[in-house]
Amino acid sequence: MSSTLHKLQYLRKKKGMSQDQMAQKLGMTVHGYRKIEQGSRRMTLELAIKIKGIVDVAHIEDILDAG
């Protein structure tokens, strides 16, 4: 599992959110969000920006792998 996927799960849990709650805030199914956390679905830039706002990180790089 890549560090991006670990970061997503860590940041979501740090906010006290379930996968279902995160999916609802993102306007997607929990199945779709779970696939992103598992790495079987790619995260778009648009989705990363939405997640950034939900988990209150300062920079998009705090979610995405830099390299």
Rank of each mutant, 00 (worst) to 15 (best):
I60V: 15
S18Q: 06
E61F: 07
T4H: 05
H6T: 14
Q21H: 06
Y10P: 01
L26R: 01
E46R: 13
M1R: 10
L47V: 14
M22S: 01
R34Y: 10
A66F: 04
I60F: 05
T44S: 14
S2V: 06
L8F: 06
L47C: 15
E46P: 11
T44F: 11
A23T: 04
Q9W: 00
Q9V: 09
V30S: 08
H6K: 13
D20Q: 08
E46Q: 14
Y33K: 08
A23H: 03
L45E: 15
K52Y: 03
D56Y: 08
E46I: 14
Q24S: 04
K52H: 05
R41P: 08
Q19S: 11
G53V: 13
G67F: 02
R34K: 14
M22Q: 01
V55P: 01
K13D: 05
V55Y: 02
H31A: 11
D20I: 06
H31G: 10
I36V: 14
K7M: 02
I60K: 08
D62T: 12
K13L: 05
G16V: 07
K15V: 05
I36C: 04
S40I: 13
I49P: 05
M28V: 11
K14G: 04
A66G: 07
S2G: 09
Q21D: 07
L11N: 00
I54Y: 05
A58R: 15
L64E: 04
K13G: 02
V55W: 02
V57S: 07
S2P: 05
L26P: 00
D65Q: 14
M28N: 03
E61V: 12
S2H: 09
M22W: 01
I60M: 09
G53Y: 10
K25G: 00
L26V: 02
D56C: 13
L26G: 00
A48V: 14
L45K: 15
I51D: 00
T29W: 00
T4P: 04
Q21E: 13
T4K: 07
L47F: 10
K13H: 05
K25C: 02
K35N: 08
Q19P: 06
Q19A: 10
I63T: 09
M43F: 12
E61T: 15
M28F: 03
M22G: 00
I51A: 02
Y10N: 10
R41Y: 10
L47H: 11
V57E: 07
I54K: 08
T44P: 11
A58C: 13
I51S: 02
M28A: 07
S40C: 13
K7A: 03
I36G: 01
E61H: 12
M1C: 12
H31Q: 11
L45N: 15
T4W: 07
E37T: 12
D65E: 14
S3R: 14
S40A: 13
H31M: 09
E61L: 11
Y33H: 09
I54P: 04
E46G: 13
S18P: 08
G27R: 01
S18W: 05
A48H: 11
I51V: 12
Q9K: 08
S18N: 08
L45Y: 14
R34I: 07
D62R: 09
A58I: 12
Q24E: 10
K14Y: 02
Q21Y: 02
M22V: 02
H59P: 00
L11Y: 00
L47D: 11
A66Q: 08
L5V: 08
T29H: 04
M17R: 03
D62Q: 14
L26I: 03
R12I: 01
K7Y: 01
E46N: 13
A58H: 12
